[in-house]
Amino acid sequence: MTVVRKRTILKADSIPRLPAHVRLVFNEKRDSWVVLAPEKILWPDDISVVILKNCDGTRSIGEIAEALSKDFSAPCPEILGDVLEFLQDWSDRLLIRPAGGNGGPQ
Protein backbone atom coordinates (compact mmCIF):
# COMPACT_ATOMS: atom_id res chain seq x y z
CA MET A 1 0.00 0.00 0.00
CA THR A 2 1.37 3.40 -1.00
CA VAL A 3 0.56 6.43 1.10
CA VAL A 4 0.38 9.69 -0.83
CA ARG A 5 1.03 12.79 1.21
CA LYS A 6 -0.49 16.02 -0.03
CA ARG A 7 1.84 18.99 -0.08
CA THR A 8 0.79 21.95 2.06
CA ILE A 9 1.30 25.22 0.21
CA LEU A 10 2.12 28.11 2.51
CA LYS A 11 0.87 31.61 1.75
CA ALA A 12 1.42 35.06 3.26
CA ASP A 13 -1.61 34.54 5.52
CA SER A 14 -0.44 31.11 6.76
CA ILE A 15 0.49 31.04 10.43
CA PRO A 16 3.59 28.86 10.82
CA ARG A 17 4.55 26.90 13.93
CA LEU A 18 7.00 24.19 14.85
CA PRO A 19 5.19 20.88 15.30
CA ALA A 20 5.44 19.06 18.63
CA HIS A 21 8.19 16.77 17.33
CA VAL A 22 10.48 19.68 16.36
CA ARG A 23 12.34 21.88 18.83
CA LEU A 24 14.57 24.91 18.42
CA VAL A 25 17.07 24.92 21.30
CA PHE A 26 20.29 26.72 22.14
CA ASN A 27 23.36 24.47 22.40
CA GLU A 28 25.61 26.07 25.01
CA LYS A 29 28.65 23.92 24.20
CA ARG A 30 28.63 25.05 20.58
CA ASP A 31 27.21 28.50 21.35
CA SER A 32 24.63 28.14 18.58
CA TRP A 33 21.03 27.23 17.89
CA VAL A 34 20.04 23.72 16.86
CA VAL A 35 16.82 22.22 15.54
CA LEU A 36 16.03 18.81 16.97
CA ALA A 37 13.61 16.50 15.16
CA PRO A 38 13.25 12.72 15.07
CA GLU A 39 16.41 11.30 13.55
CA LYS A 40 17.56 14.81 12.56
CA ILE A 41 19.77 17.51 13.97
CA LEU A 42 19.95 20.74 11.98
CA TRP A 43 22.26 23.69 12.58
CA PRO A 44 20.41 26.67 11.06
CA ASP A 45 22.24 29.85 10.13
CA ASP A 46 21.53 33.14 11.93
CA ILE A 47 18.80 34.32 9.54
CA SER A 48 17.06 30.93 9.67
CA VAL A 49 17.05 31.13 13.47
CA VAL A 50 15.44 34.58 13.35
CA ILE A 51 12.69 33.23 11.08
CA LEU A 52 12.17 30.08 13.17
CA LYS A 53 11.92 32.05 16.42
CA ASN A 54 9.01 33.94 14.85
CA CYS A 55 7.14 30.74 13.98
CA ASP A 56 5.19 30.69 17.23
CA GLY A 57 1.74 29.98 15.81
CA THR A 58 0.45 33.50 16.45
CA ARG A 59 1.65 35.59 13.49
CA SER A 60 1.20 35.09 9.78
CA ILE A 61 4.12 34.77 7.39
CA GLY A 62 3.21 38.23 6.06
CA GLU A 63 3.40 39.69 9.57
CA ILE A 64 6.72 37.98 10.20
CA ALA A 65 8.11 39.34 6.91
CA GLU A 66 6.88 42.84 7.75
CA ALA A 67 8.63 42.74 11.15
CA LEU A 68 11.84 41.40 9.61
CA SER A 69 11.78 44.05 6.87
CA LYS A 70 11.76 46.71 9.60
CA ASP A 71 14.46 44.96 11.64
CA PHE A 72 16.76 44.56 8.64
CA SER A 73 15.75 47.72 6.72
CA ALA A 74 14.90 45.68 3.62
CA PRO A 75 11.91 45.81 1.24
CA CYS A 76 9.01 43.76 2.58
CA PRO A 77 8.15 42.06 -0.75
CA GLU A 78 11.72 40.77 -1.03
CA ILE A 79 11.75 39.56 2.59
CA LEU A 80 8.32 37.95 2.14
CA GLY A 81 9.54 35.97 -0.88
CA ASP A 82 12.62 34.75 0.99
CA VAL A 83 10.64 33.83 4.13
CA LEU A 84 7.98 32.00 2.09
CA GLU A 85 10.64 30.06 0.18
CA PHE A 86 12.45 29.08 3.39
CA LEU A 87 9.29 28.07 5.26
CA GLN A 88 7.89 26.16 2.27
CA ASP A 89 11.07 24.08 2.16
CA TRP A 90 10.77 23.37 5.88
CA SER A 91 7.08 22.59 5.50
CA ASP A 92 7.87 20.12 2.71
CA ARG A 93 10.26 18.39 5.15
CA LEU A 94 7.52 18.39 7.86
CA LEU A 95 9.55 20.72 10.10
CA ILE A 96 7.02 23.59 9.94
CA ARG A 97 3.24 23.33 9.95
CA PRO A 98 0.53 25.93 9.50
CA ALA A 99 -1.39 26.56 12.72
CA GLY A 100 -5.14 26.15 12.52
CA GLY A 101 -4.98 24.33 9.21
CA ASN A 102 -4.36 27.43 7.05
CA GLY A 103 -2.27 26.95 3.96
CA GLY A 104 -3.94 24.26 1.92
CA PRO A 105 -2.90 20.87 0.59
CA GLN A 106 -2.06 20.72 -3.09
Rank of each mutant, 00 (worst) to 15 (best):
K29R: 15
S73I: 10
N27V: 05
K40P: 05
G100N: 05
D56W: 04
V4E: 11
G62Q: 01
R97T: 09
E28D: 13
A20S: 14
W90L: 15
I41K: 12
D89L: 15
V22K: 02
F72G: 02
I96L: 08
L18G: 06
L95W: 09
C76Q: 15
G62W: 08
V25W: 02
P44E: 01
L10P: 01
F72Y: 14
A65E: 03
L80C: 00
V50S: 12
L18M: 06
S91G: 09
I47D: 11
V50W: 04
G81M: 09
V49H: 08
A99M: 09
R17C: 13
F72P: 01
G62V: 05
S14A: 02
R30I: 06
P105M: 07
P38F: 01
R23L: 10
W43Y: 15
P75S: 06
T58Y: 07
D46R: 15
Q88A: 05
L10N: 00
I96A: 00
P44A: 08
L68D: 05
S69F: 03
W33C: 04
E39G: 08
N102W: 07
P105N: 04
L87G: 01
L10G: 04
R59S: 11
K70F: 12
K6P: 10
C55W: 00
K70G: 04
R93Q: 14
F86W: 02
S14M: 00
D13T: 13
D46S: 15
I47E: 12
R23C: 08
N27W: 05
L68Q: 03
Q88G: 02
D45A: 09
R59C: 07
R93H: 11
E28P: 06
I41N: 04
V25R: 12
G57H: 02
R23E: 08
I15M: 06
S32M: 15
I79A: 04
R7H: 12
A74I: 11
L18D: 01
C55V: 05
V22R: 02
L80K: 08
T2K: 14
Q88W: 07
L18C: 02
E85H: 14
S48Q: 11
G81E: 11
P98K: 03
K40G: 01
A20V: 11
I15K: 03
I96N: 00
S32Q: 15
P75Q: 05
N27M: 07
L68R: 01
L52H: 00
I41L: 14
K11L: 11
L95C: 09
I47C: 09
V49N: 04
P77H: 10
R5S: 11
G103D: 01
I9P: 00
K70S: 10
R7Y: 07
T58H: 10
L68T: 08
P75Y: 03
S60L: 06
P105C: 00
S69W: 05
A99D: 01
R93P: 07
E66I: 05
Q106C: 09
D31L: 13
L80S: 03
D71Y: 10
D31C: 10
V49I: 09
